[in-house]
Every structure is written in structure tokens, then in C-alpha cells.
């Protein structure tokens, strides 16, 4: 019926070609949408202004204009920089985004990989971006960059733990680490015997969801967790010495990762590509077309929360940040695991 149904009959390299195309779209289109919707428009409305209006209808082509502008900017390497590390950092950051998007399923057959290790792999590769950021901070040979890079490292490893531990509750409930299996478990789930909307884990794992969202905010270094960038203290932190296209690549990476992380969160807690539409079974082929749209809708909702917080809250202090992670989120996440496991055994 759809092209995806035929996908199984193609050779591996043909399938992979299609998947790579879809992956590029999933990363770049979603990142572009988020920049336009949230960074250009949402923040403008929150500050009682219109935002970009000139390029295209309601300024929707502003983003392309920006890319065109950045393409023409001179590429400056600081004289004392560690040239290789400095140049390699954007590659590492963007590569980690693409390694991450691989686990997100878009429909019953529309997946990039259908690995049993799904979410485990995602949690593993999400740490790769830390290396990229540390490389950027170190390679720039600038005091601001070095401080930003160090702060980012401390923050990212501290919030990696609540992120991983929050996922554990979902894994206990779904009994699988396979992303597709997690979606299915939510679709087949029942709330006290009523299966009308399945059982999205945001209901049963609300604590984990809140922890995950906070940790995600910190992993993405969005305000109130933006100490690594902290423009009032560190100029732009680890990105200070980057100019032109290289700077834009960090920027793209930031928003693309926001999209991918939200996609992972919506798979874990909101039922992923599945939505309770009457008359549609879990395996219907229609989901291969409808699924990505449903997923993107959920991503937009989740990123809305991220950017809402970003534009509303002031920055944490560095020690408060570490204390929140170690004294509040990690014990809470551990308690959540034990309680979830207990309830799982009892019921």
C-alpha cells in the first residue's frame, strides 16, 4: 500500500539509502521547524513583538536567509587554537545527533534500526556530545571557551544520571528496551481495564517524566541550565571562538538534539508515533504515514515546554545545579525505580 510496505523487499543498501534520507529530514526539518516556531515566533510573542516578518509569509523563510548569511561569513581560526581539535568539534557534536536519531521509530515499519537495545543505545550515544563540547572548549585556546567547556562537562555528566535512571521506570513497565516495543506496550496498555487511550506512561511514570524533562533541559544546556553558554559571564562559552558556519553548526546541533531528545521522550512517555484513533489497529499500514506526523506533533508539544521554560526562568547558580542533580533528582529517580518495581511485582 505504501512505499514502506515495499521497503522490506529492497536490498540493504537501498533500504539504508531511504533511511538516510528520512533521517536527514527528521533531523534538519524538525530542527528548522523548532527554530522558526519556538526561537523566532514563540519567544517573540512572549515578549510582545512580532519576530521576523519580512522573509516569506510571516517570516517563514527567515531561516534560509540566516543560513545564507552564515555561509558567507569568514571562517576564523584562533591563532593559538589546537587546530585539529577545534575543527573536529562540530563534527562530533552533529554526529552524536545523528547517532541518537537512529533509535526513534516513526511507524510500525518506518524505523531506522529495530534493535532490542533501543533506548540503551540512545542513552549510550547521548554522552558523545559531551566529548564534542569539551573538544570545542579545549581546542579554542580561549579562557571563556575553556571555562564553558568545563562547566558543560560537569553539567552534562551530572544530568546524564537522572536521565538514564528515569528511563529505567519505563523499561520496567514495558519490559523491553526496544523502542518499538515501548510504543506497543503503551498502545496495548490499559488503565484499570480500560484500553481506550492505551496507557501512555506519562500517567503511570509521571515522576520519571518530570525528571526526564528536567534532565533533558540540562543536557540540551537550555536556560535555566545554560551555564556553559552563560552569555552574561562567558560570552558564549565553548562557542566563543567559533565564527560563521562552524558556529551555525553548533546551533543546528543544539536544536536538532532538542528535537531528537523530545522525540525520544515522546516515545517513552507519550506513546511515540501511536495515537488513540478509533478503528486503527497497531499494525495498520496507515501508521507508517500517519505515525511520523503524530510523532512530530508530540515533539512540538514537548519542545514547547522546553522553550517555555527557557524563556521564562532565570539561570541557576553552578552549585545549585549540581545539588539539584545529586541531592534531588538522582535519589528521586532511584526511589521511582524501586516503587515502580514494587508495584510491578504486586500487581
Amino acid at each position: 500500500m505504501t512505499d514502506v510496505a515495499i521497503l522490506g523487499e529492497l536490498a540493504y543498501w537501498q533500504q539504508t539509502g531511504i533511511r538516510v534520507g528520512a533521517g536527514l529530514a527528521a533531523v534538519l526539518l524538525v530542527a528548522g521547524t523548532l527554530v522558526y516556531l519556538h526561537l523566532f515566533k514563540l519567544v517573540s510573542f512572549m515578549q510582545s513583538r512580532l519576530g521576523p516578518m519580512e522573509a516569506g509569509p510571516f517570516g517563514s523563510l527567515q531561516l534560509l536567509a540566516e543560513v545564507g548569511k552564515f555561509l558567507q561569513k569568514e571562517d576564523i581560526f584562533p591563532r593559538k587554537a589546537d587546530r585539529f581539535v577545534f575543527a573536529a568539534a562540530p563534527f562530533v557534536v552533529l554526529m552524536s545527533t545523528f547517532l541518537l536519531v537512529v533509535v526513534v521509530p516513526g511507524g510500525p515499519d518506518a524505523w531506522f534500526i529495530n534493535s532490542e537495545l533501543g533506548i540503551y543505545l540512545a542513552m549510550a550515544v547521548s554522552s558523545v556530545s559531551v566529548i564534542g563540547i569539551l573538544m570545542a572548549g579545549w581546542g579554542s585556546a580561549s579562557k571563556y571557551s575553556l571555562l564553558g567547556g568545563l562547566r558543560a562537562t560537569g553539567q552534562l555528566i551530572a544530568y546524564e544520571l537522572p536521565l538514564i535512571l528515569a528511563v529505567m521506570g519505563v523499561v520496567i513497565q514495558a519490559e523491553t528496551m526496544n523502542m518499538q516495543g515501548i510504543v506497543q506496550a503503551q498502545a496495548d496498555g490499559e488503565i484499570f481495564g480500560w484500553g481506550g487511550i492505551g496507557n501512555p506512561y506519562i500517567l503511570t511514570q509521571f515522576v520519571a517524566f518530570v525528571i526526564f524533562m528536567i534532565a533533558m533541559q540540562a543536557e540540551l544546556t537550555q536556560t535555566p541550565f545554560d551555564m556553559p553558554i552563560a552569555e552574561s559571564e562567558l560570552v558564549t562559552g565553548y562557542m566563543t571562538e567559533y565564527s560563521g558556519m562552524r558556529f551555525l553548526l553548533f546551533f543546528i546541533g543544539e536544536f536538532a538534539t532538542a528535537g531528537v531528545f523530545s522525540a525520544i521522550a515522546s516515545v517513552l512517555f507519550l506513546g511515540g508515533w501511536w495515537a488513540p484513533i478509533p478503528g486503527l489497529g497497531f499494525d495498520d499500514n496507515v501508521w507508517n504515514l500517519l505515525g511520523p506526523l503524530v510523532l512530530v506533533t508530540k515533539v512540538v508539544v514537548l519542545t514547547f515546554i522546553i522553550f517555555w521554560a527557557r524563556f521564562s526562568l532565570p539561570r541557576f547558580r553552578e552549585d545549585q545545579l549540581q545539588q539539584l542533580a545529586w541531592k534531588v533528582l538522582i535519589p528521586l529517580a532511584l526511589a521511582n525505580i524501586v516503587v515502580t518495581a514494587l508495584l510491578k511485582i504486586v500487581f
Partner: peptide, 15 residues
């Protein structure tokens, strides 16, 4: 895992 590797390379290629 080959797919994962290819996606990593796509990220590098895009940059």
C-alpha cells in the same frame, strides 16, 4: 549497527 555507523558518517558528511 552498520546502520548506526552509517548514520554517524552521514552526520560527518553533512558538516
Amino acid at each position: 549497527y552498520l546502520t548506526v555507523g552509517i548514520f554517524g558518517l552521514v552526520g560527518v558528511a553533512l558538516v
